[in-house]
């Protein structure tokens, strides 16, 4: 982990100020987890809670996921750049109101690979591909914005998968989906999955049957990914929380790549951007005949 990263005092001071003045009801940030090593979400309601706030390279969670739950109050949120893209997504999709969210943006050095009780020294794969180290939306910024160096080959693993034969792809994914236990943690951790009734829970029409089995799992994963097409902000929380290590980013990033190629669009860059599947251009052809 990087040394000398001490954004904590600034975050705490701002949080204390916001809670003391009553500007917000709650500050959503990070605190140390029960292993004494990694981080977990913290909901600070009292100025006294503020001293629990931390920020370091274990702060993996995308806290923007909690904003829809707190729609009815005014909250402050500690936001990394990827989290800030999720905030933009939620704003663009009219799920939250800008004036009810105070964004404490944090310049992010990247998050390390970690599981409960264990911290690695490698940056998470998604952080190695990160293009924005400074939040895209904030009311208060903590940290010095660095110069951005876009990753050289962000989609090399997607390209490798694309190059495989249909049979190879089919068996690869069949094996991945077969492992799913349908805990729906991927959905629950996702800031973009906020439907009041998920298609997976609808009974009529019944899209996903009760069997926790390959065919049902396949519907779940393919449609989950596609519902996030042009909306996924690549925080990769879905993959991080998956208890059976299904490589969900390989699905999400295929769509991200194609959305970029077809529509020149990356989600969450602004609060006004309309997701590409919710709009169209009359003159585009998109590789289809007339």
């Amino acid at each position: 982990m990087q040394e000398g990263l001490d954004l904590m005092p600034q975050i705490r001071d701002k949080a204390r100020e916001l809670l003391t003045s009553g500007a917000v009801d709650c500050v959503i940030g990070y605190e140390r987890a029960s292993d004494g090593l990694t981080a977990r979400p913290l909901f600070a309601y009292e100025p006294n809670d503020v001293d629990k706030l931390i920020f370091d390279q274990t702060c993996a969670h995308n806290l923007a996921r909690f904003l829809v739950n707190k729609r009815d109050s005014t909250v402050a949120i500690v936001a990394k750049p990827c989290d800030s893209r999720a905030i933009n997504l939620l704003l663009a999709e009219k799920q939250i109101q800008r004036e009810r969210v105070y964004v404490i943006g944090v310049v992010c050095p990247g998050i390390v690979e970690a599981t409960w009780g264990q911290i690695g020294d490698k940056l998470q794969a998604r952080c190695q591909l990160c293009r924005e180290h400074t939040p895209l939306v904030y009311d208060f910024l903590v940290g010095e914005p660095p110069a951005e160096e876009p990753p050289a080959e962000p989609y090399h693993d997607v390209a490798e998968m694309e190059a495989k034969s249909a049979a190879e792809k089919h068996s690869f994914w069949a094996e991945q989906f077969a492992r799913c236990i349908r805990c729906y943690a991927c959905r629950q951790a996702c800031p973009g999955c906020y439907c009041t009734e998920c298609f997976a829970e609808q009974l009529d029409p019944l899209w996903v049957g009760i069997r926790i089995a390959p065919m049902e799992n396949e519907v779940w994963h393919i449609i989950r990914a596609f519902h996030l097409a042009g909306r996924c902000i690549a925080c990769n929380e879905c993959e991080r929380v998956c208890p059976v290590n299904i490589p969900l980013s390989l699905l999400n990033r295929k769509l991200e790549k194609d959305v970029l190629e077809l529509f020149g669009f990356r989600s969450g860059l602004s609060a006004e951007a309309v997701p590409p599947l919710a709009t169209f251009k009359k003159e585009e052809r998109l590789g289809m005949s007339e």
Binding site: C183, R187, A189, I210
Partner: peptide, 28 residues
Amino acid sequence: RLADRCLHCNICAYVCPTCYCFDIRDYI
């Protein structure tokens, strides 16, 4: 307050050796 940070996924129940809740439905 505890539920504030809960994602309401099913991980805890599904990895648990003592959780036994189940659902029954028909499958065609």
